[in-house]
């Protein structure tokens, strides 16, 4: 469904991503792990159109979307929930979700999407009239995911959905993400520092270090790989 090949992205004068390639098949739950500053966020931004890659190709569902602006990529159904959430802080929860369904394709189904999001995160329903900026970190993360879902994604990219959350809340969020994949067949590409938990849930994973993809494999194999264990699991 998503095929990234030889992608190089500059962030300032230095390449943050060098010739990275990865694949996500339809229905798959793919994890992307690596230390801070490895270039994971930059890679995702280049995929979703927030940054322009210097070289390489991004193909989504057979369409070459390399260098497209973010708003057109979103229209195709590739939806990115970015690091730091990028919510609209002075709008209500409800308005944030409505804006998630901004595109005509999503707007037609926005009532249903809203209901689904509220089923998934009942907490958001309770706070629907509250300004997004006043939510707690966990609620904001739920809202960010909800806003992404409202855009009716076919591939959802989640960048650090667990950052800054308590371990319990982080696991809760990851479980919900897993359910999206297993119950609704939503294709996922997820970055998280909760490496062990992510690898337990994901089907397949890529490891990124200093801008390059250095390892890949079924998540169950990676979690057993002594090198990965040593670096990320701390065992």
């Amino acid at each position: 469904m998503l095929e990234v090949s030889g992608l190089t992205v500059y962030y300032g004068p230095l390449p943050a991503v060098r010739e990275a390639s990865l694949k996500v098949a339809a229905g798959q739950f793919v994890g992307l792990i690596g230390p801070n500053g490895a270039g994971k966020t930059t890679l995702l931004k280049a995929v979703s159109g927030l940054l322009r890659p210097a070289a390489g190709r991004v193909v989504f569902d057979g369409t070459d979307i390399t260098g497209w602006p973010a708003e057109r990529i979103c229209e195709l159904g590739l939806v990115h929930v970015p690091e730091g959430r990028k919510l609209f802080p002075r709008l209500t929860v409800l308005d944030n979700l409505r804006l998630g369904a901004y595109l005509p394709r999503a707007r037609a189904e926005s009532d249903r999407a809203l209901k689904e999001v509220f089923d998934l995160f009942p907490r958001l329903y309770e706070r629907r009239r509250q300004l997004a900026g006043t939510l707690s970190g966990g609620e904001q993360q739920m809202l960010a995911i909800g806003r992404g879902l409202a855009a009716r994604p076919r591939l959802l990219i989640l960048d650090e959905p667990t950052l800054g959350l308590s371990p319990r809340l982080a696991h809760e969020i990851l479980e919900v993400i897993k359910r999206l994949n297993s119950e609704r067949r939503l294709t996922l590409l997820v970055v998280s520092q909760e490496v062990v938990h992510l690898l337990k849930l994901a089907d397949y994973a890529f490891v990124m270090e200093t801008g390059r993809i250095t390892a890949e494999g079924p998540a169950s194999e990676l979690i057993a790989d002594p090198k990965v264990r040593k670096v990320y699991v701390g065992l």
Partner: peptide, 15 residues
């Protein structure tokens, strides 16, 4: 308002 408050977020929802 979305564009004013968070331009990147706005682009990511297709605005």
């Amino acid at each position: 308002q979305a564009v004013a408050q968070e331009p990147d977020g706005a682009r990511l929802v297709g605005i």
